[in-house]
Amino acid sequence: MTRRVTVRTQSISLRLDMRVLGLLGALGVATLLALTLSVGRGDFPIAPLEVLSTLTGAGDEATRFVVLELRLPRALTAVLTGIALGIAGAIFQDLARNPLVSPDIIGISAGASFAAVSLIVLGDTSGVISVPLAALGGAIAAGVALYLLAWRGGVQGYRLVLVGIGVAALLHAGIDYVFTRGQIFQVAEAYVWLVGSLNARGWEHVWPLAGALAVLLPLALALGRQLEVLQLGDDVARALGIGVERARLALLAVAVVLTGIAVSAAGPIAFVAFIAPHIARRICGTVSPSGVLPVAAATGALLVLSADLIGRLAFAPNGVPVGIVTAIIAAPYFLLLLRRANLLGATG
């Protein structure tokens, strides 16, 4: 049995799972520690206490610059990207009722990448349309195309996944083509973007992410209940009074936009959206899907932040892009998971 507390005010009533709250607290503390570490470590080391005092307004000018202008926005971008990817991955997996699905596989990230890479290699990145905007647009366009192509009197899980695989294959061919059309230095720049990197991320990346998450996060959590009912199967969900297709569309839209904003801020960081929900489900135990969503978000944040930290410190002075670290960490885990999921017959 899970213990729950109920919070009631005049207009809102919330039932909170104690285990989820505990996990969120623990992950939050771990993320804060990683954040302090991330802001403190690097070419210009700053002691943890000094980091804290700088954040509260003290410290000399150099320290303030390094902390407030360089490292803090980068670390915050990592945290926010991780939140968005973790929750988007959890929604996709629950929607498709398939643990192997992630925006990397079904073409959402590929849509964002195609648009961004085309702009970097062939276009003018200083124009009205910036790379982040192109990536967001690409993700949304891919999401719309995916939905329309998979629609057949409704969008069923497995058709969505397979159509997505086709869409992703086409978009990846497009990306490879674009790479043959440009100058090598632009192509190299596009490649770093394509792997997912947090280099030189500033407040201009943090604010749009934070703004979008402020809207999308409550929306995703509110839709969590419907996600839970959809898990029971379309017929049961209908019997319980859920507009099945509308709920699915809403959830899909939220997950696509969450993926889009994450990719537009940091590039398609490999497999965070895939692995964060798995770790979350593992540590949650028997918690319901709507309870897993916030834990997946927190896990994603910790994952991206730590991966970036590892990439910066273990490969100093130049560092490696965060996406390389997540891909390498994910690889063995990923193969084990794939085999396990197939053994259990969870993939269909």
Partner: peptide
């Protein structure tokens, strides 16, 4: 098969890009 292949594909593409 399709999903395992697609996942394997994504993994190998990510490592290649890396």
């Amino acid at each position: 098969l399709a999903l395992s292949g697609a996942v394997l594909n994504a993994l190998l593409v990510a490592l290649t890009s890396a």
